[in-house]
């Protein structure tokens, strides 16, 4: 098993997903099966290979915007789907640093 239970718990924490104990075991099993399978990439020699950053190839480089204000100013549209909002703010349980 390449991914142990502690690892699964840590990843779940980072992902902000909680699992019941029996779910954890099932996920651990699935994860291990998948990770063991993708491990076959380690046999490829990539010493001199650079990673792909994007399959989009633009010889002119990354497209850029002009610095103009042409968006925003629609608070109603921004907050209309919010589960909890008040006076145009999004509400979240109190966060203290």
């Amino acid at each position: 098993m390449s991914v142990d239970k502690d690892n699964v718990v840590k990843i779940a924490k980072l992902s902000k997903i909680s699992f019941k104990d029996d779910e954890i075991e099932k996920f651990q099993e699935d994860l291990n099966q998948i990770i063991d399978w993708v491990d076959q990439l380690s046999e490829v020699n990539t010493e001199t290979v650079s990673p792909t950053f994007s399959s989009f190839d633009n010889d002119k480089g990354m497209k850029k915007r002009e610095d103009i204000i042409n968006d925003g100013n629609y608070r109603e549209d921004i907050t209309v789907n919010a589960p909890n909002s008040e006076e145009g703010f999004f509400l979240v349980p109190k966060v203290i640093d």
């Binding site: 991914v3 690892n7 699964v8 840590k10 990843i11 779940a12 980072l14 992902s15 997903i17 996920f27 699935d30 994860l31 998948i34 990770i35 993708v38 990439l41 380690s42 490829v44 990539t46 290979v49 650079s50 990673p51 792909t52 950053f53």
Partner: peptide, 29 residues
């Protein structure tokens, strides 16, 4: 959830090079 978990795992510290970076190199090949 499964995919989020796999994705988080392969990007997490200590595994990034072996999985994510490796995969992007293989992708180049």
């Amino acid at each position: 959830k499964r995919r989020i978990m796999i994705g988080t795992y392969v990007l997490s510290s200590g595994y990034y090079d072996a999985y994510y970076l490796k995969a992007q190199k293989v992708r180049s090949l």
